[in-house]
Nucleic acid binder design. Structure first.
Length: 431
DNA sequence: TCTGGGGTCCTAGGACCC
DNA sequence: TCTGGGGTCCTAGGACCC
């Protein structure tokens, strides 16, 4: 059987590239993009990486470094990134019959019928076309398995000989060539091997991808579970992680956020929770699911020293599965009442749903609790569809439940937010 | 003063059943 | 005093990913 080669296409420094697209002054300069609440660095341009700014670094720790080097600092703008991501993915879909959108900035492409040399040429065309149509630079790794494609992709960025080309192709490698490459890759740089496993493996003399490839199956399975064993097979060139071409519906959905400032009052906390529930219910309806279990959690800062900490969560089984915002909000409020303690400075809250089932397949509760009879159910469904439609067209939060409040005084800090160039005409025209 | 958010999978252990 | 064994379901915790 002939194996189908896999390409991993990865957008370079994606969030930074998005910001640069609409702000050419950011080219050839160190740029970072921050997490929610402007807390951590979550994307860096190559220039910023060279300054030694680490991924995930808290802003207050690198503030001097940023200032001294006149680094451009931007708040994250997910609306913009999601929109550009879609354009990139649509472009990629022209080039392969099978595409797995793996994350906001990465996709696996299966490219049957190409020789190793032809794959190279095809990868050049993909890069060129994505660049032309979206302006986003990408790197491409080509290999017989997903794990090796990730590894090859990494080489295309790290290896100075390939950096300019942005393509690294190991589909034509001999066994000896592949072994040599794997021996140069540290075990912590393998997809699926995190810091904990890497430290463990190093203690057992396994330092490189080559060492791991050669480790005995039984030992690997015992210590790294079956997932670790699959990673090892993939290093050996045996595909063990199948293509996931259609995203399966989510099994859990979470909406949580740290506050822009600490919250003490129940009412403000309740407003935040209602806002998060509304957003969560939208996500639920977008995948045509209803939830049977709802969890609410709150906590004070993990980091604040000298202040008393408090964290609690409550999990509720709902009378019947639902995606109806008012009902979810009412349950969440009751849950919050159960765990709220006055006198603490809360830093974060969140809501989560589990036990998701398809909207069409749900069991009706015959005893009139919750949303009740089929006619009410249908009316509520239509109401939510109308609300979702309006919010899609007019912008998130145009129509909202009253308990969510209107001020969001506790909302995120986003001091350096770029306009939503691709989704809001008014913001594009304002620049 | 200031430290993100949203997911998945696997395993062990307890509850419960026959 | 000795005190089965196997199956299922659920949950909590750990590890990983971007």
């Amino acid at each position: 059987m002939i194996q189908t080669p896999v390409a991993l296409v990865d957008c370079n420094n994606f969030y930074v590239s998005c910001e640069r697209l609409f702000n050419p002054a950011l080219h050839n300069r160190p740029v970072v993009v921050l997490s929610n609440n402007d807390g951590c660095v979550i994307a860096r341009s190559n220039e910023a990486k060279e300054l030694g700014i680490k991924m995930g670094a808290p802003v207050f720790e690198v503030r001097d470094l940023l200032k001294k080097n006149q680094v451009e600092v931007w708040s994250s703008n997910y609306t913009l990134y999601a929109s550009l991501s879609q354009r990139v993915m649509t472009t990629l879909e022209m080039f392969a019959p099978e595409v797995e959108v793996y994350s906001i900035d990465e996709a696996f492409l299966w490219l049957p019928g190409f020789s190793p040399a032809e794959l190279d040429a095809q990868a050049v065309r993909i890069r060129q076309k994505v660049g032309q149509w979206t302006g986003i630079p990408v790197s491409i790794g080509l290999a017989p398995t997903k794990t090796l494609a990730k590894l090859a992709n990494r080489q295309s960025k790290k290896n100075p000989l390939y950096k300019e080309k942005g393509i690294f192709n190991i589909t034509g490698y001999s066994r000896a060539q592949l072994d040599e490459l794997l021996a140069s890759v540290r075990v912590e740089d393998i997809w699926g091997i995190g810091a904990r496993r890497a430290a463990f493996l190093q203690q057992h003399g396994i330092d490189t991808a080559y060492d791991l490839k050669e480790a005995p199956d039984r030992w690997v399975q015992k210590h790294l579970t079956v997932m670790g064993l699959r990673t090892v097979y993939e290093l050996r060139g045996i595909p063990s992680f199948p293509a996931e071409l259609a995203a399966p519906p989510k099994k859990t959905i979470v909406t949580s956020r740290g506050f822009g400032r600490d919250i003490e009052s129940f009412e403000e906390l309740s407003e935040a929770v209602a806002t998060y529930v509304s957003r969560l219910a939208e996500k639920l309806r977008a995948q045509h699911s209803v939830a049977s279990v709802l969890e609410v959690f709150i906590h004070t800062s993990h980091f604040a020293k000298g202040r008393e900490r408090y964290a609690n969560a409550v999990t509720m089984r709902l009378p019947q599965p639902t995606a109806y915002t008012p009902e979810l909000v009412a349950h969440a409020r009751r849950g919050l009442e159960a765990i709220y303690r006055p006198g603490f400075k809360y830093q974060k809250a969140g809501v989560m749903v589990m036990g998701l089932v398809p909207e069409t397949g749900r069991q009706l509760n015959l005893f009139g609790e919750g949303e009740g009879d089929p006619a009410t159910l249908e009316r509520n469904r239509k109401l939510m569809a109308a609300v979702d439609g309006l919010n899609r067209q007019m912008g998130r939060g145009t129509v909202r439940i009253a308990t969510a409040g209107t001020t969001e005084a506790w909302g995120m800090r986003r001091g350096k937010l770029s306009p939503r160039y691709t989704t809001r005409w008014d913001e594009l025209l304002a620049i």
